[in-house]
Write a protein that binds this DNA or RNA. Structure first.
Length: 223
DNA sequence: ATTTGATCATTT
DNA sequence: AAATGATCAAAT
């Protein structure tokens, strides 16, 4: 693991230095080997970049670069420039323990994000897939407002115990999906009827419609 | 083809 | 147990 960057400038310099390199190049610099596929190593690339860039939050519920308040996200992008996956943000507090957007886990992580696209080309082996140019992004006001609205609506469903309505169908940019080792994992909650029921733990995710937009705006005309 | 729900690995 | 890193694969 590298030492934490002392400034945003230092972090960005490190991130730009990775652009264009293959996963093989980067793994080698850490004396690591690239897995053959991601099936049993789903978070591998993201964790590799954390180490190389010097992330220091160590699984705390804090942005990866705690001192800089910047969250790192790696985003798989297809050869045609399409974002392939949604982006996990954080676990959803159930039962709810947050009342204000400004103090929410989602906002703490989304206020400033370092987005690093990673080539996701299923016709090529994983080790040869390359790292893209980094994007340091904070939500523009209108997007922040939409995120806040999504968060408030989802949080209200949790607060009111309307777990039957709490699905991935809600939310324009932010959605809630299961986040658990498997579908048999559960937590007990009290629903809107006052009954205690079991549900699968949830997490907040960013829909790819938003991450797609961010990448298009920053990589303008690069297709 | 895209989206939702399910799952995998690691760390503390 | 619960957080992190996400992608897989079934459903639509």
């Amino acid at each position: 693991m590298n030492t934490p960057p002392q400034s945003e400038t230092e972090l960005m310099a490190r991130a730009f230095a990775l652009a264009g390199k293959s996963l093989q190049d980067i793994a080698a610099s850490c004396h690591e080997t690239v897995p053959l596929h991601l099936t049993h190593a789903k978070g591998w690339a993201g964790q590799l970049l954390e180490r190389v860039l010097g992330a220091n939050a160590c699984n705390l519920s804090q942005p990866d670069f705690m001192n800089l308040k910047i969250e790192l996200k790696t985003i798989p992008v297809s050869p045609l420039g399409k974002v392939r996956e949604s982006t996990y943000i954080c676990t959803a507090p159930i039962p709810n323990s947050e009342s204000q957007w400004e103090h929410s886990r989602v906002w703490r992580k989304m206020a400033k994000m370092l987005i690093i696209p990673i080539e996701s080309d299923k016709s090529k082996p994983l080790f040869s897939q390359r790292i893209g140019a980094p994007i340091l992004w904070s939500p523009p006001r209108p997007i922040e407002m939409q995120l806040r609205q999504d968060w408030e609506e989802l949080t209200e469903l949790i607060m009111l115990g309307h777990f039957e309505l709490l699905s991935a169908h809600q939310g324009k940019y932010l959605q809630i999906r299961p986040k658990a080792p498997n579908a048999k994992t559960f937590v007990k909650v009290v629903n809107s009827q006052g009954q205690t029921i079991s549900i699968v733990p949830k997490g907040f995710y960013l829909r790819s419609i938003l991450t797609q937009k961010i990448i298009e705006e920053n990589y303008s005309l690069c297709l």
